[in-house]
Nucleic acid binder design. Structure first.
Lengths: 220, 220
DNA sequence: CTCCTCGATGTTGTACGCAACGTAGGGTGC
DNA sequence: GCACCCTACGTTGCGTACAACATCGAGGAG
């Protein structure tokens, strides 16, 4: 969501960026892994140039760390880092959610509700449960919500720090109760937006983040 | 303050980044100006490669916009953009200021006080007034304050969006009363921190930003 | 045996060259 | 006279080659 820089490089550069990001977020490239430019270039069938550009961007997003003449490493997120990220989210996302109430059209709300519904269906305990699908749906939901706020600076601040995917990489760490709460929050946010009550929506988002923080960061 | 990515490229790349950033913030490269890679490369006596890397980073910071096969342009900030930036600052900087109260040592406070004092001296009306020096002092003050919060994620979120220098490019737009208030706020923040009162310090920062917003954005 | 120095090796940093893409201008057809 | 197409130009995107730097290992001196 580096809005403008994202659509550079018709093909290769963008592909390298997307592939690397996915590999990191998917856990395929574990935290602390060394990323050699040639290694990645060969792996993707590209030259070093676009790979280098992709690494530069990932570094500015904070997903990798660059050390001069020593290559790049996948960033290691400590418990404190994660906690700090939740501080930022709590400072910004409720506000964004509240603003979404002023801009959301009925069509927008229908889409959000569909996502929330899908998450409830996919996340319900039982043999049909698919926690991986949940990750994508969740990402979509939050992204759309953020877009509805019509606050580009706010969205940029979040995008460049939160690494939502890192934080929301998996729902497997959620215990059943927390997961149920999380899914219910999405639906409640839509309800609040439908009611045009930004304060309510923002409050739900705060609950949502508090719940997530407890799961991911643990005891404070 | 892209902490890790900043110290890449022993010489040329970093130089290009710094020079370009300064040129943009100084107004030497006006908003909307077209930035050709070869043009900049020749101007700095470098190859296109480091220039290209610098442009990529500036784009991810939001200072320039990249259009595929069409080059880079200096970002144009609208009034709404500026307003949105202040929303982010108001959401994050008071919190950071409050946290600084927990970490600041007497030595830190002395340095902050020195900066605040220098600003009062340099900013006082009269023949000695130097509004340009004020910009650097102000940048220093806010940067140190942010560092004292010990909240890297928060600092990163701000750095990647606020472009403090863009916002604080000049104090010439301040009327005498607003300027006096602004300078007094710095001193009051130090006082609040010395008292160990994070809430107070955060409140002053909110005032500080509200005052600045009124000057820079105008009527809401 | 330990420490220091020096070389070998692999990496990143930079420069340059070619190809692809977008744009603007002139020319032609209607 | 106007609209459309086609060509020529300038730009960026990518690949490759070379140079600079950092690290690690071996060898020798103390």
């Amino acid at each position: 969501m580096t809005t403008t820089a994202e659509r550079r490089g018709g093909r290769a550069s963008e592909r390298a960026l997307a592939d690397l990001r996915e590999a990191i977020l998917e856990g395929e490239l574990p935290a602390g892994a060394h990323l050699g430019e040639v290694e990645i270039a060969e792996r993707l069938g590209l030259s070093r140039t676009p790979v280098r550009e992709a690494l530069t961007r990932l570094a500015s997003e904070g997903l990798v760390e660059l050390e001069a003449h020593r290559g790049a490493r996948v960033t290691r997120f400590s418990r404190e880092d994660l906690d700090g990220i939740f501080d930022v989210r709590l400072a910004l996302e409720p506000q964004a959610t509240a603003r979404a109430a002023d801009h959301a059209t009925p069509a927008d709300l229908d889409e959000l509700e569909a996502l929330a519904g899908a998450m409830l269906a996919v996340g319900a305990p039982g043999p049909e449960q698919d926690l991986d699908a949940l990750v994508d749906l969740n990402r979509d939901f939050h992204a759309r919500l953020l877009a509805l706020a019509h606050a580009p600076a706010l969205a940029a601040a979040l995008a460049n720090v939160v690494h939502t995917p890192v934080v929301t990489r998996t729902f497997r760490t959620y215990d059943p109760d927390s997961l149920a709460r999380s899914l219910a929050h999405h639906a409640e946010i839509v309800a609040a937006l439908r009611a045009g009550d930004g304060d309510w929506a923002g409050a739900v988002m705060r609950c949502h983040l508090g719940n997530a923080r407890a799961v991911m960061v643990g005891e404070r």
